[in-house]
Simulated scan of single mutants.
Amino acid sequence: MVFYRAKDFTATRAWGALDIANMNGVTTRLHWTDSPYKWHINDGEEVFVVLDGQVNMHYRSGGEEHVQKMEAGDIFFASIGTEHVAHPVGEARILVIEKEGSV
């Protein structure tokens, strides 16, 4: 049994991660970042949970870019084919659940 205090986690680089679990090929990772990621499409589904801080989630739907502000406790589900990029507002800690090896 292991306990984690997300708000205390930091990494040496943006999007650095702490591997929490791998359950039958599905990973759960805690990320720390203070910089945007990159536009991408996962090769599987993704659950993205803001645990600390704020994130502007940019995504494309119907050929148009949209932005949703996310705060601690907010959850984003990216289905297969959802193009998106996360832009933290300052520092953020994010729990990501996705297929092992996904972008």
Rank of each mutant, 00 (worst) to 15 (best):
R60Q: 15
D8W: 04
S61R: 15
V89P: 02
T82H: 02
F9V: 05
F48L: 14
E91Q: 06
D8K: 10
E64N: 07
G16V: 05
G62A: 08
Q68F: 11
V2Y: 09
S35Q: 15
V89F: 10
T27I: 15
H58R: 13
I75P: 06
S61Q: 14
A78K: 00
G44C: 03
G73Y: 07
N24Q: 14
G62V: 11
R5K: 10
F3C: 06
K99D: 01
G90I: 09
N56H: 01
S79I: 04
S35E: 14
R13K: 09
G90P: 04
Q54Y: 01
T82E: 05
Q68D: 02
E64C: 09
V85R: 04
N24F: 05
A72W: 06
N22I: 01
I75S: 11
R5A: 07
E83N: 01
S102K: 01
V26L: 06
A17C: 13
I75N: 13
Q68S: 01
A92H: 05
G90L: 03
V47D: 11
T10N: 12
V103M: 05
K38E: 12
E65I: 07
I41M: 15
G101I: 13
W15P: 09
F77D: 01
E65R: 14
V26S: 04
G25R: 09
K7D: 14
F48Q: 00
N42G: 10
F9N: 01
Y4A: 12
K38Q: 15
V26I: 00
D34I: 06
R5I: 08
S79W: 08
R93E: 02
I94F: 04
N22M: 04
D19C: 06
M70T: 04
A72M: 03
R5L: 13
A72C: 08
D19S: 15
F9H: 09
T33H: 06
A92P: 02
N42M: 12
T28S: 13
G16C: 10
W32D: 00
E100R: 03
L95I: 07
K7T: 02
H31Y: 13
V49M: 03
D8P: 09
D74Q: 04
G44W: 00
F48G: 05
W39A: 03
L51T: 00
V2Q: 14
G16Q: 11
I20T: 03
H87K: 04
V49S: 11
G73A: 02
A11P: 00
P36G: 00
F3K: 14
D52G: 00
K7Y: 07
D74M: 02
W32T: 08
N42Y: 11
E46I: 01
L51M: 09
A86H: 09
G101L: 09
D19G: 12
G81Q: 06
T10A: 07
D19K: 11
V67W: 03
T12V: 06
R93Q: 03
F77Q: 06
V55E: 04
N24R: 10
W39K: 10
S35W: 00
P88Y: 02
T33I: 01
R93C: 00
L51N: 07
A21T: 08
E64F: 12
N22K: 12
I94W: 11
M1Q: 13
N56V: 10
A78E: 03
S61A: 14
F76S: 07
F77V: 15
T27L: 11
G101Q: 08
Y37V: 11
E45N: 01
V96H: 06
R13P: 04
I80C: 02
S61Y: 13
A21G: 02
R60E: 15
F77G: 00
M1L: 09
A92V: 09
D8V: 02
